[in-house]
Amino acid sequence: MLRMIRFEFQKMFGRAVVIGALAVLVFISFILLKAYCFNTSRTTAYLPDGTTLSGREAILYHQSVAGKYEGDFTDEAVARMVSDFAEEYPKDFYGMTHDGSVNASLPSAYLYLPMFLPPQNYDEIFREAAGKGTAISPLTEYGLISMREYMSLADEPLQYGYSDSWELFFLSFFGPAAAIATPVLIVIILAVSTAFSGEYSMKTAPLILTTKYGKSRQITAKLLASLLFATLLMGFVFALFCIAFGLQYGLAGWNADMQTNFGLCGSRYCPAGIGSRSAPGYADCFSCECGECPGGIASANRQFVDFCPSSPWTGCWGWDSNIGCAGSFRRYSTQSISKLSRRSMIFR
């Protein structure tokens, strides 16, 4: 059987269509890598002095910033982030707490902070931060939203660490660049179909069908070879992406603790619409289904406060596909909150 499978492979790779399709696939892979992985706001870094780094240097910069907060992800760590952010990027901090205009190439550590900044406290936070400089104020003074609000049932502290580049990779590979799936499937279909139809088109069927196993085991061999081919090809493309990405941006963060993928989906004012994660100036926008967010667009926009007056929560946050407005969010039971949190941790 193994021999037969090997020969099936030999046949598949003997076909010009298959080889050609593989070559095209590699080519498409690089285009997709270039378009989706090597060319996003996350692979540029905007420095406090106003310069912009890109590529590997940008990644290294993001890593060094994130490295400062590595370890237990506590309210205290958040406070430090807010404080550092306010000092290093006063303009963007002002933007974050006022009109939502933040640079999308900010260090990843700061990008999701709005999640912890309650809009009604923005002014106060801003004043405090401006006044204190580098000093770390107690959380309560800032009026930050506590980690516990999100992770009420977590008994162990979350772990923070750099994860951005590989997170980006996986998001790219399984997200937009899953466009690669279509060409991969086409190659698989080509190769697999030739494994079956080839005997007729090449007129080898009369030879095959008069052999002892030509009508029985041969079919199994073909099926197994097809399965193996599909698996190997998928693995090959994945490995190709990994290697290309690793060469480009290094390995840091690939093994980040799952918990660091905590769903920090803070969102800003989204004037145009939703889903503009990569639009410059807007970190995250998403659609809100709570019915209480203006235009169905969720953000931590100040105007929004007017729409949720009764709620101590003044933001809408995305939990994967479950979007909760602060108001309705509150109405979830603690158990479902934790479920949501865990889901967002895993899928972010």
């Binding site: 030999q10 046949k11 003997g14 090449m202 007129k203 009369p206």
Partner: peptide, 9 residues
């Protein structure tokens, strides 16, 4: 009478 081969074998 009529049959084909795998050209790359």
């Amino acid at each position: 009478q009529e049959f084909g081969f795998y050209p790359n074998f």
